[in-house]
């Protein structure tokens, strides 16, 4: 049997089993907390009670299974610390996801809308929106997501622009934190952190290294580590068995593919 010519559907079956079996029969791997995740945790931990952060849901629904657990962990921690939240979104689908997530956590944490949190929602043309928030939040968003006048929210009476914001956290599956860094960070001096899908980690590490990004956590593994710091199990932790076995399956497939390739080349 020529291994290189195997029907790709067999590979699909292997990948599916590598994901499904550990979910059905979990062994509870979580792994160590990386220094990066610890930095993010410390950053939020160091914010004073009553400080305000902007959490921007700059992601699409497609990546939510990966980035949702990151967002859950960060929002939960922020609310545990009594930090006030302004929610925004510069990608349309993140708008509904962010609204639901913040509303649910606010209910659980007894956060009062308008006083402890507001959800401003979507803005197209993110560069203009990011710059606009630096001038005046209520001018940029005259109404919140559910069409209430922003001026009616006591939170926005006290927090007028980036000057009054302790940190911006961009929950992103793409390059949006780059615009936060280039337009909000560089121009207005606000601190930026990012909760990223794993695929964006290598893109943003240079910004972490240069100090333009205060902290970043990436992917389901980052969420699992953060959940561990919060002392609970969540979607991130639950996914780690499957993540491990699926990685191993792909690594084995790549090795088999290479062995078959070199043997074939040796023969020819």
């Amino acid at each position: 049997m020529n291994l290189a010519q195997i029907d790709r559907r067999w590979i699909f079956v292997i990948v599916f089993l590598a994901v499904a079996l550990p979910l059905l029969f979990p062994i509870g791997l979580v792994g160590e907390v990386s220094p990066r995740t610890q930095t993010m945790h410390d950053l939020i931990e160091a914010l004073p009670r009553g400080a305000t952060v902007i959490i921007s849901f700059d992601c699409e629904a497609a990546s939510w299974p990966e980035i949702g657990p990151v967002a859950e962990a960060l929002v939960e921690h922020t609310m545990q610390r009594g930090i006030r939240i302004i929610g925004t979104s510069f990608l349309s689908e993140g708008t509904a996801l962010g609204f639901e997530l913040l509303s649910r956590h606010a209910d659980a944490a007894d956060y009062v809308q308008g006083r402890d949190w507001v959800y401003l929602g979507f803005r197209p043309q993110y560069v203009a929106a990011i710059l606009g928030l630096g001038e005046s939040i209520t001018q940029e968003y005259p109404r919140d997501y559910i069409n209430q006048p922003s001026e009616d929210h006591t939170l926005l009476g006290a927090v007028r622009s980036y000057r009054d914001v302790a940190l911006v956290i961009s929950i992103a599956d793409d390059t949006m934190p780059q615009y936060w860094i280039e337009y909000a960070g560089a121009r207005y001096g606000v601190k930026i952190a990012a909760g990223l899908s794993a695929v964006m980690v290598t893109t943003f590490t240079p910004y972490l290294d240069s100090g333009q990004l205060q902290a970043l956590i990436g992917g389901l593994k980052g969420a699992a580590e953060y959940e561990r710091l919060l002392g609970r199990e969540g979607a991130g932790s639950r996914g780690m068995d499957a993540q491990s076995s699926a990685h191993l399956a792909i690594i084995v497939l790549v090795i088999i593919g290479n062995v078959a390739y070199f043997r074939g080349r040796g023969r020819s």
Partner: peptide
């Protein structure tokens, strides 16, 4: 090295999405 690391992380990301969907179907 950069592309290799990015590729590794890309596989990680895509698998996370599959984990989410499988968890939904099975759970």
């Amino acid at each position: 090295v950069f592309f290799g690391a990015t590729f590794g992380y890309t596989i990680m990301s895509r698998l996370s999405l599959l984990i989410g969907r499988t968890e939904f179907l099975l759970g």
